[in-house]
Design a protein around this nucleic acid. Sequence first.
RNA 1: GGCCCCAUCGUCUAGUCAGGUCCAGGACGCCAGGUUUUCAUCCUGGAAACCGGGGUUCGAAUCCCCGUGGGGUCACCA
Length: 564
Amino acid sequence: MHAGSGKEVITRFAPSPSGHLHIGGARTALFNWAFARRMGGRFLLRIEDTDQARSSEASERAILHDLAWLGIGWDEGPEWRAGDASFGGDPRGVGPFRQSERLGMYREHIDRLLEQGSAYAAFESPEELDAARKAAIARKETYRYDRAALEMPAEERAARVRAGEPHVVRLRVPEGAGVSVRDEVLGEVSFKPGEVDDFVLVKRDGYPTYHFAVVVDDALMGVTHVLRGQEHLANTPRHVLLQQALGFAMPVYAHMPLIFNDKGAKMSKRERDQTAREAVKSAGIASSPVGGISDEVFGGWLADKTRQLDSEALEAIAGHLGLHLPEVSVEDFRSAGYFPEVITNFIALLGYTPSKHKDGGDREKFDLEFLCRDFGIDRLGKSNARFDRVKLASFNADAIGQLDDAAFAERWGAWLAAYDPATLEALGAERLVVGARAVKPRCKVLSEASAAIGFALMRDDAVEFDEKAVGKVLAKGEPTGLSVLEEVRGVLAGVESWEAGSIEAVCGAFAESKGLGMGKVAQPLRVAVTGGTVSPGLGDTLALVGKASVLARIDRCLRVCRVG
RNA sequence: GGCCCCAUCGUCUAGUCAGGUCCAGGACGCCAGGUUUUCAUCCUGGAAACCGGGGUUCGAAUCCCCGUGGGGUCACCA
């Protein structure tokens, strides 16, 4: 008896509001969302904030924002407005959707378990348990809770609870209870009796543990299908045992393959810390190179692989070292200038294979609308997938290339406004479109775009003439680049309409009249105007710099490079 | 270490469930050419994989077993 048989499909994404939405979570949300859409069901969002120390409202907002930005809308859950779209709400009356607001429901269910003897209070302190765990490891044994609390008389337990003694509540796992689950991705997975110990349902602070809350909420909210990462596979027997104790139907389970990093391990939020830590170590830095971090915090972070610095501090250190931190969270990718539709396309490919084109060809590029039509659990693979950043970048570059100049300019402008307003201001609205055309085939992500037109944003006297370029392009040749430059300056000075097309036409005509190849004209101009031999098309390059500046830069180049 | 999962080019994968049409197809990357005023884009071509060993079968990338490798998980985190 499955929760899913014959009814409306209900899936959920249940993030804990600690930090940003990371890419693995985004994929989980995406698949649950797409599956609900495909089945004509509903997708709900639940906030798992039972860890009082780590949860924050700011994080919840960030996660909702990230989901909305990716185009993953939820039918039920916390309410959210993004432009003219609004998500969330509680049409079926199964809320609230924050676990911290559902404490009464957990209480009811724990009371039931306590009454039927399926759960019991236990009084060991965290320290005691920790010691027992360490001792077991030292003996090379698997630690399992020893049920000490179960050995005392029930009246004694009750009395101690009444007396207000701190305690947890544990599930009493029936002896000899093996669990077998038909997983929709992996097939039949079974766990032998004795593998699951009496795990904690209610913490000392009265909050439910993840295991307890997830089972109660999924049942109460009518969740029919649970699509989650394979790291949860080992949790499944706990959840099934709990469902049995509570008399709940079992949802359909589908455990998705993991997303790996370059090192072949699960991609995690700690990735950026690791990258920064390694760089700091190999640079031999012992105390923080940036302000605001005490030696104590910095030293602790350096020594302890599990510690994380806050993201601003991390960015600052990376900036100081000229280090690129690997993007891990959706916010990282957004600020790096990846398109949301590219991210969802790419992460969908990690584990899911789209159906082929009508002509039998493989399909790789698709939008959310297609995913909602095509996604199925039967299209999920079993093996873990490495997150190939190079391929992602290539997808993003393709998406940029698909845009026409105006559309790209608009997207780029919006990104600049949010993440690089200084460049936007320096460039100005009228140069944005020309800049966009120049930059479009030269950047894979939006954050690379500014560098490609950096020459246009600097002061005329700040241009540094590359020595090699000067030697090769200006000094040598017959005629020399410098002399060509001097002549073409005069021609350019007479150009009325300073616009890429006419500039290029004028230069072309000049080259032809002199019997020179275009390279003989373009390269000296490039060096004079940008300092180097590499830049966008000549017309765009000169148009971006502007007539007055071009002439000024040529004059300065003539002066500076003639002497040298 | 216990338990559990996985295994096709460097990477993501198609093919595996219904064994032959697969001397294994696509994409990213790589290499070589071409277009071009530089770079980039773009175009063409190329190298590149069924983890190993046993079975089953006329026939196995596909089915079974063992081994090896990788991963996940063993919290009063989720």
